[in-house]
Amino acid sequence: MHPAISVIFFTVTSGAGFGMMFVLGLGLPVHQGAWTTILSCGLALGLAVAGLLSSTFHLGHPERAWRAFSQWKSSWLSREGVLAVLTLVVFGLYALIWLASGERLASLGYLSSFLAALTVFATAMIYAQLKTVPNWHSKLTPLTYLGFALASGFLLAALFISTSRIGGVHVAALAAIFVAAAWLFKFIWWRRADNVGFSETGSNAGTATGLGHLGDVKLLESPHSSDNYLTKEMVHQIGRKHGAKLRFIAVICGVVVPVFLCTLAIFSGLIVLPLLVAVFSMFIGLFCERWLFFAQAKHAVSLFY
């Protein structure tokens, strides 16, 4: 599949933003004071909004985007839009009350956490629902999206933390656990994805055309003399070229460096600086991971070519 930069940016940043809302809504202890509230909630809302705005760049007619709120009964994309706006409103209210009164309403916080998790789930289901892309069509897809949202959101929220321990566990240790768990899901996802390709399941031009019983089916003449929308969008190949290298970079920046920096934070006593670097590193890792999520996914229509 064509890895559109707008969609990669959208899924990574809005995931982190909603992950942050999830963590803050659950009542992560952060420093007192209006500035912390403004910065932490602002960052969470800003990331989510930036991601959502970026996703509209992917549209042919962004001015009609409001129509996408109408089909929540059947469409995951519509559900995602509705849930995202609901989450932004509820969490925005939570942040405003927090800012005005200094008090964090637990009920409103829990509600925004719940909605934030649902939003990320809906985002993942846009891809996981597609039977045409076997790599994505799995329950593991929402699991990896939720894992990455929690890990990146927690790392970001931990920059504002007022205590070094939550429930007796060091904050950096918790961050490392979330990061490692998310990538563990991703490793399982990759393992599955590498084994559900069309060649592994015996699908080819013969099964696609229904002519396989007559012999080996090979495309002799393409229906078009140059690329068309289908080949550009769904038979995209260039992005796969550096798959192994990008996967290596994703793992180093996404999990190895952040976990190392978290460990450093535990033993050095510093929290904010190592975690700040870990966040940047993880974002680079996630952008590579998301690029591959699209670029390495093969679509059923490629069988006809």
Partner: peptide
Amino acid sequence: CIGCGLCAWSCPYG
């Protein structure tokens, strides 16, 4: 139509 392209992604036949 907002031109999101998801319907084309969901169609196995192109």
